[in-house]
């Protein structure tokens, strides 16, 4: 349950970006998370409103792009989606696979709201 710590780290990065762009608020935060990152998307979503309260991202939507686990087999060259508990090649069963995706823990994009001229 370290998702709150991850959330706070994300929000201070987001706050820095918002300050640099002189944004009034953050409306969307898009992240990419793979099951091998150790972060549970559901727990991150639950932690988000608590961590975001009172910050520049208080009203932002947190959009999580859950990445699949994909491997490339060094033995037979096959590329396939697998599960986090078994990264062996689904075709030939070889254990020498390279992870193509599944361990992402990325802040992909933020959508900023700029100072309105109506004030």
């Amino acid at each position: 349950m370290h998702e709150l710590a991850v959330c706070r780290s994300m929000l201070s990065q987001v706050a820095r970006i918002a300050a640099r762009h002189r944004a009034r608020a953050v409306t969307r935060i898009s992240v990419r998370i793979g099951p091998l990152s150790g972060v549970e998307p559901d727990l991150l979503s639950q932690a988000f409103p608590f961590a975001a309260a009172g910050t520049v991202a208080e009203h932002a939507a947190l959009v999580i792009d859950a990445r699949p686990v994909r491997v490339h087999c060094e033995a037979c060259g096959h590329e396939a989606e697998t599960g986090p508990r078994n990264l062996t090649c689904p075709r030939c069963g070889d254990g020498r696979t390279r992870l193509l995706s599944g361990d992402e823990l990325l802040l992909a994009e933020v959508e900023l709201l700029h100072q309105a001229t109506d004030t």
Binding site: H21, R24, A25, H59, L112, L113, H114, Q115, A116
Partner: peptide, 11 residues
């Protein structure tokens, strides 16, 4: 803190 209104910019 801040309040939403105005133009949006994806970064």
């Amino acid at each position: 803190s801040a309040h939403p209104a105005g133009g949006r910019e994806p970064v």
